[in-house]
């Protein structure tokens, strides 16, 4: 998705103003010359200047006939749009449910859903999900000693 520079500039300007305003609430300790917000505020001023420049250049481009927003072909194909959205959705799913479901079940659901959606045959998708989850569990939990969440399987593994 390509947007006209003026839109990017406007977003940057709004973000810079918001961060600047929020960082004015940071305290200034007695005896200190600068508050904790001084550095982010300086960066925000520079970001706002860049935003202003992009708004200016975007409007100039726009007068040359450029559209505000240009979408790739796949944005108009609902199937592909869902396929692409599956990448961030899978991460979001893990953030929401991994504590409850645990790593193993979350991983199986993510791998199965994605590989089936991408066009893998069901048997291959199941093999991929099981093998990948097993390898990840072995590498991170057994070799690297990372505490991946067990979730609802905790009572099965350790007893209730």
């Amino acid at each position: 998705m390509r947007v006209n520079d003026a839109i990017t500039g406007l977003i940057l300007l709004v973000v810079a103003i918001a961060i600047f305003a929020y960082s004015t609430t940071f305290p200034q300790l007695t005896g200190m010359q600068f508050s904790a917000g001084f550095w982010p505020q300086t960066l925000c001023v520079l970001l706002a200047l860049c935003g202003g420049f992009l708004i200016f250049s975007g409007i100039k481009e726009r007068s040359g006939g450029q559209a505000w927003v240009r979408l790739d072909e796949w944005w108009r194909q609902s199937g592909t749009l869902f396929t692409v959205a599956l990448v961030p959705l899978a991460i979001f799913f893990y953030i929401l449910f991994s504590d409850f479901l645990g790593f193993i079940i979350s991983s199986l659901i993510i791998l199965l859903t994605m590989s089936l959606r991408f066009g893998l045959k069901p048997v291959s998708a199941i093999i991929l999900a099981v093998v990948t989850t097993g390898v990840m569990q072995f590498v991170f939990v057994d070799l690297l000693l990372v505490q991946l969440p067990w979730g609802i399987l905790e009572s099965v593994v350790y007893g209730s």
Partner: peptide, 23 residues
Amino acid sequence: REVLVPVILLFCIIGSFAINTSL
């Protein structure tokens, strides 16, 4: 690709989680 993308994505998720064991 249908194999690579899901596997790499899962690796990214676990890798980001593992650094501080935090979501």
